[in-house]
């Protein structure tokens, strides 16, 4: 049981980092992207290649993943950021579809649908992190670092300018804020943290393939942010824990026939999400309307 809970905790820390990274875009920047799984995937592939081809050093893999996902996210986002609102959602949807195809077809790099197998357990400075608790602590360390960076930046002028942009892009521009630069930096930062989460995910699963980086995954990450409370520090973490813990808890329902288990779980899961958004539309950690 402990090993199972440790495994879930690792996933929660990794997806927590991922949702914190998307919160920079959605919660603070008002940039609604449905392509975040792409940057998660880029980081996972980069981290997996470092582990398979160079050394399974988690810091090296995380650095490579952050650079790959961060730089590529900024490059890919530059043309898309010229549009705003619902048009950006559509542009990001296109990017997600494009990336899924590239991940599938570029089998020399990604292994295609067969993926990359045999990713070794991570190490840090030569010390093995094969022990699940040690790996969890490292994941929590990356998560804490990301939270600290987000907290610092969002209290600095960058964060204030980003939130001004979220509330009114035209007003922010009129006040002299460099809107394209702010958006690009937000995407770069969000992409880099998503990349780190991807590298951790590659080590955690010991296998990566395109099926983990699809539109479904992007929607799940977005749901974590929105259900938890976009634009808050704790919200994405609460959303992550809820969306990972609830399906896990549902698997413990006794007496379900094996053939009905999936459908019943999906029904309860969907119902719970709907009820939650009716009664807490601003998310678990979000402020209620009128208290902003």
């Amino acid at each position: 049981m402990i090993a199972y809970l440790l495994n879930l905790a690792q996933l929660a820390a990794i997806f927590g980092l991922l949702s914190v990274s998307l919160n920079i875009l959605i919660g603070y920047g008002g940039i609604f992207s449905v392509a975040h799984a792409v940057f998660f995937g880029l980081g996972a592939y980069a981290g997996a290649h470092v582990a398979l081809d160079l050394a399974p050093d988690i810091l090296l893999a995380a650095l490579a993943a952050a650079l790959t996902a961060g730089v590529l996210s900024a490059l890919l986002a530059l043309p898309a950021l010229r549009v705003r609102g619902e048009y950006f959602v559509i542009a990001s949807l296109g990017l997600q579809m494009l990336a899924t195809t590239v991940f599938t077809e570029a089998s020399d790099i990604t292994g295609g649908l067969g993926g990359l197998v045999g990713i070794p357990p991570p190490t840090v400075f030569g010390v093995s992190l094969a022990d699940p608790l040690a790996f969890l602590l490292v994941c929590l360390g990356f998560l804490a670092l990301a939270l600290a960076v987000v907290r610092l930046l969002m209290r600095a002028s960058f964060g204030r300018a980003l939130m001004a942009l979220r509330d009114s892009e035209s007003a922010a521009e009129a006040l002299g804020k460099n809107v394209p630069l702010l958006k690009t930096l937000a995407v770069l930062l969000g992409g880099a943290f998503a990349g780190v989460a991807g590298a951790l995910f590659a080590f955690q699963e010991a296998f990566v393939n395109v099926e983990s980086f699809t539109l479904d995954q992007s929607v799940l990450i977005m749901a974590m942010v929105i259900i938890g409370g976009a634009g808050t520090l704790a919200g994405p973490l609460l959303g992550t824990v809820l969306l990972l813990a609830l399906p896990a808890a549902l698997t413990f329902i006794p007496g379900l026939p094996p053939t009905d288990i999936g459908a019943v779980q999906q029904l309860i899961y969907g119902l719970a999400m709907t009820v939650l958004m009716i009664f807490r539309p601003a998310g678990l950690a979000g402020r209620l309307a009128g208290r902003r």
Partner: peptide
């Protein structure tokens, strides 16, 4: 003991972990 793999690697890993450890 049945676990829904959701047909995805992540679902498979979580389900397998539960089958093995729980």
């Amino acid at each position: 003991r049945a676990e829904d793999s959701e047909g995805t690697p992540q679902g498979g890993a979580v389900g397998m972990n539960k089958l093995v450890n729980v």
